[in-house]
Design a protein around this nucleic acid. Structure first.
Lengths: 198, 198, 198, 198
DNA sequence: TATGAATGAGGTTTCATTCAT
DNA sequence: GATGAATGAAACCTCATTCAT
């Protein structure tokens, strides 16, 4: 029971921080604001986190690990053709992030901050993503779906960027989620068409 | 002569700010640091700029306007095939930005900050870019180089994202400029291949 | 207990501010000085007050409300003749203010500053004072002690001014408190003689 | 001609300072503002005045000297009864100050500032005023118009205060100049009635 | 005389963090 | 664990004054 409550307080803080970071950015959000919004005292935050930096970091790691696990599971279980898997994966990620706008905003903006703490996290996230994609592409190569001299690393980087870009544009212009998914589908298809062996 | 000196001081401030914003980010750079690095007094900064925000904004506008003008000129003067023009343009932008690493960093990171100031600038920059690209793509469509149902807006957004992504990856991993250009070439070719009418 | 301490810190800040505002004026007193003199950290001041302005405002309101309540009580309880009440009231106010020189100085000087904050406070104080005096004078008129065509509003304004002037002169020239009270008695008597119906 | 221009520039500065001090107060007015408003360069101000303080001081002295000279002349030339002269003098001063609202504001507010510079000037002004009034009252005493044990010093102080108060109230509440003059007449008559020997 | 860019000390305020309760 | 008053370094910005032109 105590355990449960502990979880609840921590979650309230994370939710509050995510929301405020998304709305105002990391630097324009004060720990006092996070506390007030989470309906706890400032001191309480420091019971669960060592510093303001830590909130951001843990928030990221938690979210991204879950996302990666979900994707990986999707990739492993299915027997679909690898390039279709890739399209599905990209759609899934965009869809998932679009369901938690606050997280998406934090993900897009703060991941690029040259914040001391994040300097350490951001590359790790991207590396995890790349490993996933490269495995898929190697599989595709093995099946002869990709030309031999296609650079799989470049594709990893690019697809990550396309996800970011599409989300960022959507957040900025505020159109419907359907339009976002449609845009992502299109750009992913263009790109995959470009690398597919014909 | 006085005019010349005035220009010089302003330029020193802009250079100092760009460098520091790139290294530490906007929020972790203090006006005092900018002043010290530019070898002027703090007060001098406020002779040329109304606020710290203004430095960032003017710095962006100045740089981006120049970049856009150069690209536009390249596009207009040449009689090359439109899709090749697009490839050339993307290469040119990456090349240009890679030559001023500090500016590139600021461009990639701060443009996403939801700062009051930037909320105003970022969309304008992207809109300028889009207009340029769409004109090119419409030209390509007219010449039958693109399939009729290709979404030119999505392509504009995507190519902007690919430039950002490639640069960001390069800055993070620190490989050679040749490798960066090569990566950009590849991803651009993949993408253009995907939309080209065959 | 915590409550008690909280009250004490606030009081220390108010006392420190009053003293320094009196000695140096509002603008020549820095928040750092107030903090140092109150033996608290600068930040502590902003726990209790929103801004430097607020300190001045709250300090005034607190003091003046108390003073008005005391006078009102004196006026209501006594069955003395109204014009004697007036003389007593004026003497009481001068006496009271002379006992807290710092407060008197702030009262005399800062009340005239056209500070945004004070523009709001000063009129309120004077209105409260006027209401009190006019009630007394109307009473006197009813008893036939004042000529019918005496302007009670003018008298309110004037007596307020006489208090201010006598105090200001005393502070400037630094004579004994007895002399101050004596001067106030005299001028009040001259004035009341001038309006009394004979 | 050069002389004339010199005068003109100085006057422009004084007029600008008076206006701004009246509107914003001494401390909230910057030298740059004064310069801009006077349509001269900042440096020019320091050609004519040693410091910001000096502007305020000279502005006061200039104005008050003229005012006193005018009153003195009025008092000397006339053969009117002294107490009527006093009433006339008070009316004249209020009338004069009410014609230059900016100067009146500065006069009323800044004269009380514990500004280092003015600490020296304010008493001098009041002393000049007192000397004038006491001379008049002594004359009245000699003619048997005042009771022997009337305190002429107190009256000097009080009448100065009444002028200030009436003006201050007028500025605060913003009624017509006729009403101001009427109020001053009334309060002066009440007061003089109170001291007149009957 | 007149200019106005340059100065830098000092102003108010914020805020991540601590610690006694 | 939970609290929130207290801290003080450091942030941005102002402004009276100077001085080379």
């Amino acid at each position: 029971m105590a355990r449960l409550k502990k979880k609840k307080v921590r979650d309230k803080i994370v939710a509050s921080a995510t929301k405020l970071f998304a709305k105002q950015g990391y630097f324009c959000t004060s720990v006092n604001q996070i506390a007030k919004n989470a309906e706890v005292a400032v001191g309480t935050i420091y019971v669960y986190f060592d510093s303001k930096d830590e909130i951001l970091i843990e928030l990221f790691i938690d979210y991204f690990r879950k996302l990666m696990e979900e994707i990986e599971e999707k990739f492993q279980n299915s027997k679909t053709e690898p390039l279709t898997k890739l399209l599905n994966g990209l759609r899934y990620m965009v869809n998932k992030l679009s369901e938690d706008i606050d997280m998406a905003k934090v993900f897009l903006v703060e991941l690029r901050q040259s914040n001391k703490a994040l300097n350490f996290i951001a590359p790790k996230i991207q590396k995890d993503y790349e490993k996933l994609i490269k495995k898929l592409l190697d599989e595709a190569k093995d099946q002869g779906l990709l030309n031999e001299n296609i650079d799989t690393q470049v594709i990893s980087i690019s697809t990550f960027g396309l996800i970011e870009t599409m989300l960022f544009d959507w957040l900025n212009r505020g159109y419907s989620k359907e339009k976002l998914i449609d845009n992502m589908e299109k750009t992913a298809r263009y790109f995959v068409n470009g690398i597919r062996n014909i």
